[in-house]
Design a protein around this nucleic acid. Sequence first.
DNA 1: GTGGTCTAGACCACT
DNA 2: GTGGTCTAGACCACG
Lengths: 129, 129, 129, 129
Amino acid sequence: MFTINTSDKRPIYEQIIDNIKELILKGILRQGEQLPSVRGLATILTVNVNTVMKAYNELEREAVIEIRKGKGAFVKEIPKKVINKQQLVQLRQDLKASCIAMHYMGMSREEIISELSSIYDELIKEESE
Amino acid sequence: MFTINTSDKRPIYEQIIDNIKELILKGILRQGEQLPSVRGLATILTVNVNTVMKAYNELEREAVIEIRKGKGAFVKEIPKKVINKQQLVQLRQDLKASCIAMHYMGMSREEIISELSSIYDELIKEESE
Amino acid sequence: MFTINTSDKRPIYEQIIDNIKELILKGILRQGEQLPSVRGLATILTVNVNTVMKAYNELEREAVIEIRKGKGAFVKEIPKKVINKQQLVQLRQDLKASCIAMHYMGMSREEIISELSSIYDELIKEESE
Amino acid sequence: MFTINTSDKRPIYEQIIDNIKELILKGILRQGEQLPSVRGLATILTVNVNTVMKAYNELEREAVIEIRKGKGAFVKEIPKKVINKQQLVQLRQDLKASCIAMHYMGMSREEIISELSSIYDELIKEESE
DNA sequence: GTGGTCTAGACCACT
DNA sequence: GTGGTCTAGACCACG
């Protein structure tokens, strides 16, 4: 359920963030549900406590979870997000970089869109369950 | 023609790499054409020579350009790319991260695909000219 | 254990690369073992940090070591190598250049092969220990 | 007969040197025979005159050819070479680097020796003709 | 603590 | 003129 990939070049705390967001999107973690403790998750993933802490703090800053002191971390309901312009710019740059990479790997327009679609569908396929 | 964006979180040398790949995809830089010298481009972008050098070397390793000592850097023909498995894994992780981000920004499946499509079309719109 | 030779014409970072590969071949550095930190090795060799970093990055690209940000560099298992055609061509040109040089030094066919053999055996003599 | 390879990473003047030495070893260029003029060879190879000049000067320094002002360059007889210790050290380092590279390419001791042998035989196969 | 990016500037080799 | 190596030192991100 919780996994990180050491060969993934993204920082571990970022992988944890995306991992939890993904579990929420898939409905595996539901609103109000309690997340593992910082120490517990650190043990599960065999990473440093500070790394998990950083992920949880960032998730709270993004209003994805709520940290109640002495109680634990809980999933918040997904809010209608105000689109942050800076984030959107960065996102587009990332997508553009991915497009260039895919094009250089010889993928056609259709293949690129198909690739994205299947990744998206994989991501939320359990949401309707 | 050559630009970097200081508000972009990616390192400068990576922006240079993508910038040049993009110019090649758009047909603005053509096969065999000489790129600016490392010192020249460093001056244009007001960055350090080593930063440009790092970008050029990476581009040569990816077989996008060819560097001839004492002569300069030249655009290679785009070869049938051998798809590197490790690269593909990383690419999918990046796309997945982007999907998660977009979903959290409230974008629907259609909007996400449309966003990607428009980025792709913008990228290669001048290729056929 | 870690050494560079200032009278060697090859660049320092390349010497570091071969030095580490050699230590791995000899079994002195074993799979999973941590290498010195870039700063540590730079101090040992009294060279600049960037020079060691360049060597480490090249070793990671060749899949000889694995770099984990914030953790350090670790020896990977030697994988079944995909033979890169370009590398093979360059290797043969280097060998040919060496042959010409040896022939001009008056070495016979037997002496040349014997020279190579002894260099090879020296290289891996400790591997079986 | 005279060729250089732009994808070879060795400097052009060095390729010219080895090219000429090879032709002499193979007996294609014989003792006393006149080499192309500096300008002529530069034209043939489409390289700069200075580059050919550098090669010829180095060849003369190594006593492989003799340059007679206003006359041209001529092949000297192959002398019994005094083995230069510094050269031998460098040569061994090159061979060692090649051995490491070959070993990492998955070649066995026998394959490495066989590779060298075939390169050597190819080099001098026409000498006895 | 770890590696990564970047700068400024020197010096070298190749064409 | 071109690129390549190296240094010294700063600042950042990650664990």
